[in-house]
Amino acid sequence: MRINLPTWLTLFRVALLPVMVMAFYWPFRGHNITAAIVFALAGITDWLDGYLARRLNLTSKFGAFLDPVADKLMVAVTLFMLVETHRGGWPGIVMAVTSAIIVGREISISALREWMAEIGMRATVRVAFLGKFKTVMQMLALIVLILQHEKDAEALRLYHIGEGLLVIAGILTIWSGLYYLRAAWPALHDDPIPVIEQDKNA
């Protein structure tokens, strides 16, 4: 199997995951800034590999499989780390509930796509702007929360901004998930399924 440039970038993104985790927990000076930079770099490679794949026509089956897996791994692991470090009180509750919504939606939609592929009726839905907006809000929220996860008094205001962005991302996550459910609903009633264009960031 020949691995092209976009797929190498995706593999690089996967390799950044343990680096981010170590930086997040290792108590060296500036570890939170390092972890935030690594996460932001992963986000940049997410955009870049998709851009290069479309621009240079370097798509592959392996890359199409690995890209969403890498994205979901990075987001899910980051959310788990943030929940673990923000226990108790309303901030912990907000973090846990929002994270559960985001991860739960990703699991549900992945299962829905797999089921529809098995029955040979792969319905997708056009949510290009909504998906991209959700992804931007989610990435910004996680970068801010990684940067300020220790919540010292001087950084508390910025931390609350990150919380707010994550809540917005959670709402958009539910909204975009409903599009997938609406597209798949006819299959649940044995009706013809419309095929609509999909955005991978949905």
Rank of each mutant, 00 (worst) to 15 (best):
M1T: 08
I3R: 02
L9H: 00
L9K: 03
R13E: 00
P18K: 04
V21M: 12
F24K: 03
W26Y: 13
W26C: 10
F28H: 02
H31L: 00
A35I: 04
I37W: 08
V38E: 05
F39L: 07
A53E: 07
R55V: 12
N57K: 15
G63L: 08
D71E: 11
K72M: 01
K72N: 07
V77A: 14
V77E: 09
L79P: 05
F80T: 11
L82H: 02
H86V: 01
G89N: 05
G92D: 15
V94A: 13
A96L: 15
V97N: 11
T98P: 03
R105I: 03
E106M: 04
S110H: 04
E114P: 04
M116E: 10
M116T: 12
A117Q: 12
E118M: 13
V125Q: 10
L130P: 00
G131W: 04
K132F: 02
T135W: 02
M137G: 00
L140M: 10
L140D: 01
A141W: 07
I143K: 01
L147D: 05
H149S: 11
E150I: 13
K151C: 12
K151F: 09
A155Y: 12
A155Q: 15
L156V: 11
R157G: 09
Y159P: 06
H160C: 11
G162N: 07
L165H: 06
L166C: 12
V167G: 08
V167I: 15
I171C: 09
I174A: 11
I174N: 09
W175L: 11
Y180I: 05
L181M: 12
I193A: 14
K200I: 13
N201I: 05
